[in-house]
Amino acid sequence: MIDFVLPIALGLFSLSLLMNLFRLLRGPDVVDRILGLDTLNINAIAVIVLAGIAMDSRLIFEAALLIALMGFIGTVAMTQYLVRGDVIE
């Protein structure tokens, strides 16, 4: 049953990655692009987790944790740069 569901879930997540990429490239303001990039990060974590189930390996989850960390730090740094004009004061 899981083998049947896994390709469907991966396809849906690929579709949402494409929609995020559309917003990242098109976004009328910089903030839209930041939002698209943040969502791209979150969906990439889910894709990595699904790949971990498909390959039946747990090692790949460290990469997902790292991507979550880096995505959050990147979003905070970019918004901080927009608001304050500087990242580290």
């Binding site: 879930a9 949402s16 979150i42 889910a46």
Partner: peptide, 28 residues
């Protein structure tokens, strides 16, 4: 797994289709 993928796809659809930024923020 299926429910998670469906809900995430709906959120990304909201990100792609909503008319202004404050609405787009809700989806993702």
């Amino acid at each position: 797994l299926l429910l998670g993928a469906l809900v995430a796809a709906l959120g990304s659809l909201g990100l792609a289709r909503m008319p202004d930024f404050y609405m787009r923020l809700h989806g993702p």
